[in-house]
Every structure is written in C-alpha cells, then in structure tokens.
Amino acid sequence: MLLTVNNLGKEFTLHLQQKRKIKAISKVSFALNQGEFMCLLGPSGAGKSTILKCIYRTYLPSQGEIIYAAPKGLIHLEKAPEETILELRQKDIGYVSQFLKVLPRISALEIVAKPLLDLGTDKETAYAKAQEMLLLLGIKKSLHQVSPFTFSGGEQQRVNIAKGIIAPKRLLLLDEPTASLDRERKKIVIHLLSQLKQQGITMIGIFHELDLVDKIADKFLDLKEVSNESNFS
C-alpha cells in the first residue's frame, strides 16, 4: 500500500467564536496501491478537500492516521516533523489546488517551468516543456509571458494543472482540477492524468463528472454527508 488512511477525523475549534467546534470529517478510512486512481465524491462541503489537505498537512488531523510508504520507509504524515513533510512535498507528494494562487509578477511560463527547474532541469528544456504543456492545455502562446493574474478562471486552472503535472510527484492530490473547464478541456486533462497513471503515479482527485473519470478511476470514496461515516467502495 502506498497510502493508508485510518479513521481520519478533522475538527476545527474557532477560538474567536467562543471556542465553537466544527466537525469537517470523521472516521474516514481507505488504502491506495501505487498507480491507483481514487476519486473522492460527495456534495459541496462534505469534506473532500479536507481529506486532501490533511494528507498534504495543510490541515492538522484531529484523529486517525495517514501512513505513507516513502522509499525510505513508512511515515505517519499526521505527526511527522515539519522538515520531513517539507522533504516529502519536494519529491513525493504534490497538491494541485482548486484555485491558482497567483502573484501578478510571475508569467504563466515561469509558473509552469518552476517545478522542472526545482528538479535541476536546465532553463531551456524546462521552458520548452512548459510551453508545450501550456499549448496542450489550450493556453495560446501570446499569453505565456503574461501573469495569469488577469486570466479567466478556466485559464488560471489550466495553468495550475500544467504546473501540477509537468513534474509529477509519486502521489498527486487533485482538488477539483477540472471544475472551471469546458467539457472538451476536461477530457484533455483526464487524458493527461491517464498518461500519468500509466507512468505509475498514484492519484486522489475530486471530480464531479463521473462519466469522464470512470475509465481511469480504480476506487471511489463517497462522502455522503458531513460528519457521517464514509462509504468506501
């Protein structure tokens, strides 16, 4: 198993509002082998992003364990020291967010090339591949040198996806990657993801278009309601 999640629960305590507690997820369990694609389902607010953020450690889990099989050995992501998590984020676990976090001063090309540059790829190759990826996702050449700050939501998301999959990590967490895209573009993205799957990349993604992911998804996790036990199939 590459990733084992046991009884994961997340609760938020709002100290500024009389310590009110908000339960986001409870008793979530599943396991993934390397190369598997799991689709998270459920209504808005059910806790799908929460699961991804707990795995990535943006959220600190309240209960349960998240065990990742790194090349060096098993790591408990819920309690690993920050240095370990930072190391894992560099090479092992990637997160494609729902919305592109964009700074107005960085061009689309720079954003997409950065993961390759971080791996040590030379500038020329990195920028060439970044350009190729952006064109594949339908971002025209004239926009490559521009910051995505002024792009449409769908265009921003495509830059975000390009950045997330150009140098894929062993485990990819995809938070509604196709939400803002038209149907044709959704198909292109899912096709790219299936190519990653063939490379052995393990993925957990939040998608609403079941018919499109049906072919590549190995497992589904349905979070029917907030604070209910999940259904794992």
């Binding site: 450690r57 943006t58 959220y59 600190l60 920050e82």
Partner: peptide, 15 residues
C-alpha cells in the same frame, strides 16, 4: 505556535 506556513495560515491552532 510553530508549524508549516500554509498550516499556520489555513489551520491555525492557537487562539
């Protein structure tokens, strides 16, 4: 509080 920057900002624990 001490932690990863994204966790401090998105899931701050201390009041």
């Amino acid at each position: 509080e001490k932690g990863l920057t994204d966790q401090i900002i998105e899931d701050p624990q201390h009041p």
